[in-house]
Protein backbone atom coordinates (compact mmCIF):
# COMPACT_ATOMS: atom_id res chain seq x y z
CA UNK A 1 0.00 0.00 0.00
CA UNK A 2 2.62 2.47 1.12
CA UNK A 3 4.88 1.32 -1.66
CA UNK A 4 2.21 2.13 -4.17
CA UNK A 5 1.76 5.54 -2.64
CA UNK A 6 5.45 6.47 -2.91
CA UNK A 7 5.60 5.31 -6.49
CA UNK A 8 2.53 7.44 -7.15
CA UNK A 9 4.27 10.45 -5.63
CA UNK A 10 7.37 9.63 -7.62
CA UNK A 11 5.32 9.51 -10.77
CA UNK A 12 3.75 12.85 -9.95
CA UNK A 13 7.14 14.35 -9.18
CA UNK A 14 8.56 13.06 -12.41
CA UNK A 15 5.66 14.48 -14.38
CA UNK A 16 5.95 17.74 -12.52
CA UNK A 17 9.67 18.10 -13.10
CA UNK A 18 9.41 17.35 -16.79
CA UNK A 19 6.64 19.94 -16.98
CA UNK A 20 8.95 22.37 -15.21
CA UNK A 21 11.71 21.64 -17.71
CA UNK A 22 9.31 22.24 -20.57
CA UNK A 23 8.17 25.51 -19.04
CA UNK A 24 11.75 26.65 -18.48
CA UNK A 25 12.68 25.76 -22.04
CA UNK A 26 9.72 27.57 -23.52
CA UNK A 27 10.36 30.51 -21.19
CA UNK A 28 13.97 30.71 -22.28
CA UNK A 29 12.96 30.56 -25.90
CA UNK A 30 10.38 33.30 -25.47
CA UNK A 31 12.81 35.44 -23.48
CA UNK A 32 15.05 35.64 -26.51
CA UNK A 33 12.47 35.25 -29.21
CA UNK A 34 9.69 37.63 -28.15
CA UNK A 35 11.69 40.87 -28.32
CA UNK A 36 12.92 40.02 -31.80
CA UNK A 37 9.50 38.84 -32.86
CA UNK A 38 8.02 42.06 -31.54
CA UNK A 39 10.24 44.31 -33.61
CA UNK A 40 9.76 42.07 -36.65
CA UNK A 41 5.97 42.26 -36.46
CA UNK A 42 6.16 45.97 -35.73
CA UNK A 43 7.88 46.40 -39.07
CA UNK A 44 4.91 44.97 -40.90
CA UNK A 45 2.26 46.96 -39.09
CA UNK A 46 0.88 50.14 -40.53
CA UNK A 47 1.57 53.41 -38.75
CA UNK A 48 -2.18 54.05 -38.42
CA UNK A 49 -2.64 50.68 -36.72
CA UNK A 50 0.19 51.40 -34.31
CA UNK A 51 -1.10 54.77 -33.23
CA UNK A 52 -4.70 53.60 -33.07
CA UNK A 53 -3.99 52.07 -29.68
CA UNK A 54 -5.01 48.58 -30.76
CA UNK A 55 -2.64 45.92 -29.65
CA UNK A 56 -2.10 42.45 -30.97
CA UNK A 57 1.02 40.38 -31.37
CA UNK A 58 -0.26 38.30 -34.24
CA UNK A 59 -3.69 39.31 -35.42
CA UNK A 60 -3.30 42.50 -37.36
CA UNK A 61 -3.49 43.48 -40.97
CA UNK A 62 0.04 43.41 -42.36
CA UNK A 63 1.34 46.40 -44.22
CA UNK A 64 4.63 46.54 -46.04
CA UNK A 65 4.84 50.30 -46.22
CA UNK A 66 7.67 50.41 -43.73
CA UNK A 67 9.77 48.08 -45.82
CA UNK A 68 8.94 49.96 -48.99
CA UNK A 69 9.99 53.16 -47.26
CA UNK A 70 13.20 51.56 -46.12
CA UNK A 71 14.12 50.22 -49.51
CA UNK A 72 13.25 53.50 -51.16
CA UNK A 73 15.53 55.38 -48.84
CA UNK A 74 18.79 56.03 -50.71
CA UNK A 75 20.63 56.66 -47.45
CA UNK A 76 20.01 53.07 -46.39
CA UNK A 77 21.72 51.89 -49.56
CA UNK A 78 24.71 54.20 -49.29
CA UNK A 79 24.99 53.17 -45.65
CA UNK A 80 24.82 49.52 -46.64
CA UNK A 81 27.54 49.89 -49.25
CA UNK A 82 29.77 51.78 -46.84
CA UNK A 83 29.23 49.18 -44.11
CA UNK A 84 29.94 46.28 -46.41
CA UNK A 85 33.08 47.97 -47.68
CA UNK A 86 34.58 48.95 -44.35
CA UNK A 87 33.62 45.75 -42.53
CA UNK A 88 34.86 43.48 -45.31
CA UNK A 89 38.20 45.19 -45.89
CA UNK A 90 38.96 45.52 -42.19
CA UNK A 91 37.95 41.92 -41.50
CA UNK A 92 40.14 40.59 -44.27
CA UNK A 93 43.18 42.59 -43.18
CA UNK A 94 42.67 41.80 -39.48
CA UNK A 95 42.21 38.10 -40.17
CA UNK A 96 45.35 37.98 -42.30
CA UNK A 97 47.49 39.87 -39.79
CA UNK A 98 45.96 38.06 -36.81
CA UNK A 99 46.30 34.59 -38.29
CA UNK A 100 49.92 35.20 -39.22
CA UNK A 101 50.64 36.36 -35.69
CA UNK A 102 48.62 33.54 -34.13
CA UNK A 103 50.55 30.96 -36.10
CA UNK A 104 53.84 32.56 -35.16
CA UNK A 105 52.95 32.69 -31.48
CA UNK A 106 51.68 29.16 -31.53
CA UNK A 107 54.77 27.65 -33.16
CA UNK A 108 57.61 29.95 -32.40
CA UNK A 109 59.05 30.01 -28.92
CA UNK A 110 61.13 33.04 -28.15
CA UNK A 111 61.84 35.05 -25.08
CA UNK A 112 58.76 36.97 -24.01
CA UNK A 113 56.50 35.50 -26.68
CA UNK A 114 53.62 35.33 -24.21
CA UNK A 115 54.14 38.97 -23.35
CA UNK A 116 53.93 39.99 -26.99
CA UNK A 117 50.78 37.94 -27.46
CA UNK A 118 49.32 39.55 -24.37
CA UNK A 119 50.35 42.94 -25.69
CA UNK A 120 48.26 42.38 -28.81
CA UNK A 121 45.32 41.28 -26.69
CA UNK A 122 45.52 44.39 -24.50
CA UNK A 123 44.64 46.52 -27.50
CA UNK A 124 41.11 45.28 -27.05
CA UNK A 125 41.04 46.76 -23.55
CA UNK A 126 41.73 50.33 -24.64
CA UNK A 127 38.72 52.49 -23.85
CA UNK A 128 37.27 53.54 -27.20
CA UNK A 129 37.25 57.20 -26.22
CA UNK A 130 40.99 56.97 -25.59
CA UNK A 131 41.41 55.80 -29.17
CA UNK A 132 39.06 58.37 -30.56
CA UNK A 133 40.57 61.51 -29.03
CA UNK A 134 44.09 61.23 -30.48
CA UNK A 135 42.80 59.91 -33.78
CA UNK A 136 40.44 62.78 -34.28
CA UNK A 137 43.36 65.24 -34.17
CA UNK A 138 45.38 63.15 -36.59
CA UNK A 139 42.47 62.72 -38.98
CA UNK A 140 41.76 66.44 -38.82
CA UNK A 141 45.37 67.18 -39.57
CA UNK A 142 45.33 64.77 -42.52
CA UNK A 143 41.91 66.08 -43.58
CA UNK A 144 40.51 62.56 -43.32
CA UNK A 145 37.39 63.27 -41.25
CA UNK A 146 34.41 62.01 -43.25
CA UNK A 147 36.54 59.91 -45.59
CA UNK A 148 35.37 56.32 -45.56
CA UNK A 149 38.85 54.85 -45.17
CA UNK A 150 39.46 56.63 -41.87
CA UNK A 151 37.60 53.72 -40.27
CA UNK A 152 39.94 51.02 -41.46
CA UNK A 153 42.74 51.55 -38.93
CA UNK A 154 40.52 51.75 -35.83
CA UNK A 155 38.51 48.79 -37.12
CA UNK A 156 41.57 46.64 -37.64
CA UNK A 157 42.84 47.75 -34.25
CA UNK A 158 39.71 46.56 -32.44
CA UNK A 159 39.35 43.29 -34.35
CA UNK A 160 42.99 42.22 -34.38
CA UNK A 161 43.11 41.12 -30.70
CA UNK A 162 40.09 38.81 -30.96
CA UNK A 163 41.36 37.40 -34.24
CA UNK A 164 44.78 36.65 -32.78
CA UNK A 165 43.30 35.14 -29.64
CA UNK A 166 40.78 32.88 -31.39
CA UNK A 167 43.20 31.75 -34.10
CA UNK A 168 45.91 31.12 -31.53
CA UNK A 169 43.56 28.86 -29.60
CA UNK A 170 42.58 27.14 -32.82
CA UNK A 171 46.04 26.62 -34.30
CA UNK A 172 47.32 25.29 -30.98
CA UNK A 173 44.99 22.35 -31.54
CA UNK A 174 46.65 21.36 -34.81
CA UNK A 175 49.40 18.85 -33.89
CA UNK A 176 52.86 20.18 -34.74
CA UNK A 177 53.75 16.70 -36.05
CA UNK A 178 51.50 17.34 -39.05
CA UNK A 179 53.72 20.24 -39.99
CA UNK A 180 56.94 18.40 -39.30
CA UNK A 181 55.71 15.54 -41.41
CA UNK A 182 55.03 17.89 -44.26
CA UNK A 183 58.44 19.49 -43.82
CA UNK A 184 60.17 16.14 -44.15
CA UNK A 185 58.00 15.38 -47.16
CA UNK A 186 59.41 18.36 -48.99
CA UNK A 187 57.30 21.39 -48.07
CA UNK A 188 58.97 24.69 -47.37
CA UNK A 189 57.77 26.47 -44.24
CA UNK A 190 55.47 28.67 -46.33
CA UNK A 191 54.05 25.66 -48.12
CA UNK A 192 53.34 24.09 -44.74
CA UNK A 193 51.36 27.18 -43.79
CA UNK A 194 49.52 27.21 -47.07
CA UNK A 195 48.87 23.51 -47.63
CA UNK A 196 48.55 22.14 -44.10
CA UNK A 197 47.88 24.82 -41.49
CA UNK A 198 45.41 26.99 -43.37
CA UNK A 199 43.25 24.19 -44.80
CA UNK A 200 43.05 22.60 -41.38
CA UNK A 201 42.15 25.84 -39.64
CA UNK A 202 39.45 26.76 -42.11
CA UNK A 203 36.63 26.34 -39.55
CA UNK A 204 38.53 28.59 -37.16
CA UNK A 205 39.13 31.15 -39.90
CA UNK A 206 35.47 31.14 -40.82
CA UNK A 207 34.43 31.54 -37.19
CA UNK A 208 36.87 34.37 -36.60
CA UNK A 209 35.90 36.16 -39.78
CA UNK A 210 32.23 35.96 -38.87
CA UNK A 211 32.87 37.34 -35.39
CA UNK A 212 34.90 40.19 -36.79
CA UNK A 213 32.50 40.99 -39.55
CA UNK A 214 29.58 41.08 -37.12
CA UNK A 215 31.55 43.29 -34.74
CA UNK A 216 32.51 45.77 -37.44
CA UNK A 217 29.22 45.64 -39.27
CA UNK A 218 27.55 46.76 -36.06
CA UNK A 219 30.19 49.31 -35.07
CA UNK A 220 28.59 52.65 -34.35
CA UNK A 221 30.81 54.91 -32.30
CA UNK A 222 33.84 55.37 -34.55
CA UNK A 223 31.65 55.63 -37.62
CA UNK A 224 29.60 58.35 -35.97
CA UNK A 225 32.59 60.24 -34.55
CA UNK A 226 34.62 60.13 -37.74
CA UNK A 227 31.51 61.11 -39.72
CA UNK A 228 30.93 58.04 -41.79
CA UNK A 229 27.28 57.27 -42.37
CA UNK A 230 27.46 53.50 -42.21
CA UNK A 231 24.28 51.51 -41.86
CA UNK A 232 24.27 51.55 -38.02
CA UNK A 233 24.76 55.31 -38.07
CA UNK A 234 21.87 55.78 -40.49
CA UNK A 235 19.59 53.52 -38.48
CA UNK A 236 20.81 54.92 -35.18
CA UNK A 237 20.12 58.47 -36.29
CA UNK A 238 16.49 57.57 -36.89
CA UNK A 239 16.18 55.92 -33.53
CA UNK A 240 17.78 58.75 -31.59
CA UNK A 241 15.09 61.06 -32.84
CA UNK A 242 12.34 58.52 -32.63
CA UNK A 243 9.57 61.13 -32.76
CA UNK A 244 10.41 62.07 -36.34
CA UNK A 245 10.24 58.63 -37.93
CA UNK A 246 7.27 56.26 -37.74
CA UNK A 247 7.85 53.21 -35.53
CA UNK A 248 7.22 50.62 -38.24
CA UNK A 249 9.82 52.22 -40.50
CA UNK A 250 12.34 52.27 -37.67
CA UNK A 251 11.55 48.63 -36.98
CA UNK A 252 12.10 47.69 -40.58
CA UNK A 253 15.48 49.45 -40.53
CA UNK A 254 16.40 47.76 -37.25
CA UNK A 255 15.52 44.36 -38.68
CA UNK A 256 17.34 45.12 -41.91
CA UNK A 257 20.47 45.93 -39.93
CA UNK A 258 20.40 42.70 -37.93
CA UNK A 259 19.58 40.22 -40.67
CA UNK A 260 23.05 39.69 -42.12
CA UNK A 261 25.00 38.95 -38.91
CA UNK A 262 22.10 36.86 -37.59
CA UNK A 263 22.65 34.44 -40.44
CA UNK A 264 26.02 33.58 -38.88
CA UNK A 265 24.33 32.32 -35.71
CA UNK A 266 23.71 28.79 -36.91
CA UNK A 267 27.34 28.19 -37.86
CA UNK A 268 28.83 30.00 -34.90
CA UNK A 269 26.76 28.33 -32.17
CA UNK A 270 28.05 24.97 -33.36
CA UNK A 271 31.67 26.15 -33.38
CA UNK A 272 31.42 27.75 -29.93
CA UNK A 273 29.85 24.67 -28.40
CA UNK A 274 32.44 22.36 -29.97
CA UNK A 275 35.38 23.17 -27.75
CA UNK A 276 35.98 25.50 -24.85
CA UNK A 277 38.03 28.56 -25.78
CA UNK A 278 40.24 29.95 -23.05
CA UNK A 279 43.45 31.90 -23.06
Amino acid sequence: MSKKQTSGIKWLRKKFSSLLVLLLGVGLFLFVFLPIFYIATMSIKSQSYVVSGEFSLIFFKPSFNAWINTFNNPRIWTGLSLSVRTATISTVIAVILGTMAAYGFSRYKFRGDDDFLFFILTQRMLPPIAIFLPYTLVWQYLDMIGKWYNLLIPYILISLPITTWLMHAYINNIPIELEESARVEGCSQLEVLWRIVLPNSLPGLLMTSMFNFALLWNEYMFALFFRNRTLPVEVGAGIRYVELTPWPTLSAQGVFLMVLPATFAFYLQKRIREQPITF
Binding site: P175, E177, L178, S181, A182, V184, I196, N200
Partner: peptide
Protein backbone atom coordinates in the same frame (compact mmCIF):
# COMPACT_ATOMS: atom_id res chain seq x y z
CA UNK B 1 59.62 9.94 -41.35
CA UNK B 2 56.85 8.37 -39.34
CA UNK B 3 55.82 9.90 -36.01
CA UNK B 4 54.32 8.44 -32.85
CA UNK B 5 50.84 9.40 -33.96
CA UNK B 6 49.78 8.86 -37.54
CA UNK B 7 50.22 12.30 -39.09
CA UNK B 8 47.60 11.97 -41.77
CA UNK B 9 46.41 15.36 -42.99
CA UNK B 10 42.76 15.74 -41.99
CA UNK B 11 42.01 17.94 -44.98
Amino acid sequence: MMFQQATLYPN
